[in-house]
Design a protein around this nucleic acid. Structure first.
Lengths: 367, 367
DNA sequence: TGGAAAGATGGAACCGGTACCATGCCGGCT
DNA sequence: AGCCGGCATGGTACCGGTTCCATCTTTCCA
């Protein structure tokens, strides 16, 4: 009779999940003992009890509800990752790093994409905090007028990635944009490019782009005989990109010109535009782009990129969150990483003899 | 005195979140009324009550806890998306489609990456169900010996994406691999390629790859004078790719050879290998790859790809889930999409006069 | 004018866990 | 021998909502 009984209960459990009370009943013990068993048997339950509980759990296929568990204790072991553009390989790479770090620490990463929509970002943050995530990693769409107060009201620790929120004391992890932009400008001027253009989508509200643009202007200004222009491409219109690129090249008036692209997406747009306009790189213009891409080495003559330590950035964000969760209440902290310029053909001046031919291809062939 | 009182309570709320009881107390009503107010005031609360509750909510900055809400009712409005490889652009694109569909329906998509790790996939599924997600979209790492029973025990509806689980009656959304592979083979043989190679990572357990490989062999076999080879590249070793590619080309014995790459990642590896080995496409070998990539048009001579309707696949998966949630208990259903071959230079036979020169470049320049 | 129906509101149980405190039992000490 | 303390275990309140049911008005009709 016992086996039949438990078999019935098992099938019930399959259709509506066994609870801790079911297990307690099946094992003939109290909920408390089952709970103790589940959490780490500090009170050293007697071997007999332990055995009975264990077999009851097996029998019922019991899995504790994290939902109910979190309601009392607050520990959800959940970290939210809110990303502005999931289609940006940079974001995916950071995400990957964060996810690995979370897994290592027993946390689960919950990823939500906002597509750069501020209203959605707000709703998403509210939703995640209402699920009691213990921390938030935020790659914000940018709030030029400041983040609405309801978001900051909650006391979940937040770490910003790549983009700051001026006026808010959140931890931040990102690239040393000033230094890397300076290096990129120097890289180009060293190679004889005298007329430089910084191309971005819209600058407004996105700190990484603003910092890069500012550093670009500063670096161009302090380099003798170097002219720097900033172009905003806006969203998605190929004709607009073509127009901006042509205008920029014309403004060079025969001097060697080069583009510094503010992101992987802009690099893609520029390369597409060059193909459409039958412009050669680096003969017609040089190119350096932020963010290393899987195809950087494959598109002739190879695109010089500024590679970011994306895995480290993701891992560092998680570390920062865990530090806060452990009780660290020190002032907001910035973690700034340096990147690396990966030199390829697109920033090599064709005038320098011998460099534009086969060695360039060799470099380009390296993955 | 009232304002001071409420200000104190406000600051308390900021540090530990207001609850429905706080709101009820502040408004001088019962929890029940507040709950009614929050859910849709079916019982038509009196205007006075409504006003008081509303202002109490504003005052306290109250946000209901989804956690607690879900505990009773079960409606978490959460859908889990478990993806085997978040770095695969195909997965991201599907994810994007699913996410848009979820948002439209008021659901939140929770994304978890398993990196192709079966044990982790299992843990992730358990974790998500223990958070009471209402449905699961699963891009499985593949279980050659079948999914462990504890995963299937839960009664959350599951939709598989791209990869089937033989022996399980789950809904499925994916590509018509047989048809698209057949078209690709015909595309290549039409253009004079007689010796074909299907290149994949490891076939084991991944239905999409297996179906493509099988369809490839079948198509090659029924095409007169066509030879088909299947190559497994394994993971990540460039030398192995180079070796396999060279061996394959040698086996062609001078006949026009072409590679069919089973995924975007394989396409990348093949193109990288070709660059390393100084092989020209399509002169030394033709190439068609599954999955459209942002750089397909940019790498000379342009890579011919099999484009999948990724957004539709993602949206369809969500639709399927919602259908199940609405109570549809009909047998498991397959939704199979057709793709589209995007022809570019990599599958154009150089022998055909006039096609390998500038028109090819023009095609390649199109984004 | 009385009573029933309809409407507004509150009380309390419940969801599935956690955690504090109580209880019963046993052994060791004075 | 009696008391105290530690250990194993159980009882129960509580987390923050939802929901059923009870209660109190109000209204309308006989």
């Amino acid at each position: 009779m016992k086996p039949i009984d438990s078999r019935i209960r098992t099938s019930l459990a399959a259709s509506s999940r066994a609870t801790i009370s079911d297990v307690a009943r099946e094992a003939g013990v109290s909920k408390t003992s089952v709970s103790r068993f589940l959490n780490g048997e500090q009170s050293t339950l007697s071997p007999g009890l332990r055995r009975r509980i264990d077999s009851a759990i097996q029998q019922l296929g019991y899995q504790p509800s994290q939902l109910a568990r979190s309601l009392k204790g607050g520990r959800t072991r959940l970290i939210g990752f809110v990303v502005a553009d999931i289609e940006n390989p940079y974001s995916v790479a950071v995400l990957h790093g964060a996810e690995a770090a979370c897994r290592e620490q027993g946390y689960t990463l919950v990823v939500c994409n906002t597509g750069g929509d501020r209203a959605l970002e707000r709703r998403t943050l509210a939703a995640l905090t209402s699920y009691n995530v213990e921390g938030l990693i935020l790659n914000t769409a940018g709030w030029p007028e400041g983040l609405p107060p309801d978001v900051t009201a909650s006391d979940v620790p937040i770490v910003l990635i790549d983009r700051r929120l001026p006026g808010h004391a959140f931890d931040f992890v990102g690239l040393d944009n000033a230094a890397m932009t300076g290096l990129a400008v120097q890289h180009l001027t060293d190679r004889g490019f005298g007329h430089l253009g910084f191309f971005a989508q819209n600058l407004a509200g996105v700190s990484a782009r603003l910092e890069r643009a500012a550093a670009f202007c500063a670096a161009a200004a302090r380099t003798e005989g170097c002219v720097g222009e900033v172009h905003e491409l806006g969203d998605a219109d190929p004709a607009a990109v073509d127009g901006a690129l042509k205008a920029f090249l014309a403004a060079g008036r025969g001097r060697p010109v080069a583009v510094l692209a503010a992101s992987g997406l802009v690099t893609l747009r520029i390369v597409q535009s060059a193909a459409r306009l039958r412009l050669r790189i680096p003969e017609d213009f040089g190119l350096v782009g932020f963010d290393e891409l899987e195809w950087s080495a494959l598109v002739p003559p190879g695109i010089t990129t500024i590679e970011q330590p994306t895995k480290d950035i993701g891992a560092s964000a998680v570390r920062g969150l865990l530090r806060r969760l452990a009780g660290d209440a020190s002032p907001a902290q910035d973690v700034i990483f340096l990147g690396r310029i990966v030199e390829r053909g697109s920033s090599r001046r064709p005038e320098c003899p011998g460099t534009a031919i086969s060695p360039a291809d060799e470099r380009a062939a390296r993955p």
